[in-house]
């Protein structure tokens, strides 16, 4: 079976215990839909971008409040694969979203930089009082 449209959505608590589950979710989804729908070259960047976005939600949007829900949605479409992370934080300013790489010796602030380097497009927007970070990879640019 060929999946042209595949969407998976999960809601997790703000807890780093879910990180390996999320990596497995990306891997399992890729395996399920097949390499044509989810090219191998997209798996690593999207998996790491997802982890960085969830880390941001846990530590910066929810400040470690474990009961705060984080919704993760992965969409696989004929031309692209996208991952959305929804939290209850205020969101990211344009400046922050496009900020420069941190100094090499800086111990923090690499998450967003990594996301920008890994995926083709990053959007931060509000949706019903929630913040959504959408990260997207075009298949043609990674294959």
């Amino acid at each position: 079976m060929v999946y042209r449209h595949f969407t998976v959505s999960v809601t997790i608590g703000s807890d780093t215990r879910y990180l390996s589950f999320l990596r497995d979710l990306v891997k399992s989804s890729a395996r399920l839909v097949g390499r044509k729908a989810f090219p191998r070259a997209l798996e690593r960047p999207l998996s790491l971008a997802l982890i960085e976005a969830v880390n941001n939600a846990i530590f910066h949007a929810h400040h470690g409040r474990r009961s705060e829900p984080i919704q993760v949605m992965m969409k696989i479409r004929p031309k692209w694969v996208a991952v959305e992370v929804e939290d209850s934080g205020r969101g990211l300013s344009r400046k922050k979203l496009k900020g420069r790489a941190p100094h090499e010796l800086e111990t923090h602030g690499r998450g967003l930089f990594l996301i920008r380097q890994l995926v083709d497009s990053v959007q931060s927007r509000r949706r019903e009082n929630r913040h959504v970070l959408k990260m997207m990879c075009w298949k043609k640019t990674h294959v």
């Binding site: 990180l19 990596r23 790491l48 982890i51 960085e52 880390n55 090499e104 010796l105 800086e106 111990t107 923090h108 690499r110 998450g111 990594l114």
Partner: peptide, 16 residues
């Protein structure tokens, strides 16, 4: 198998 920005941060902190 896997490292994220927090892992990198810990390695840089150790290096410093």
């Amino acid at each position: 198998k896997f490292i994220d920005s927090m892992g990198l941060g810990a390695m840089i902190s150790l290096l410093r």
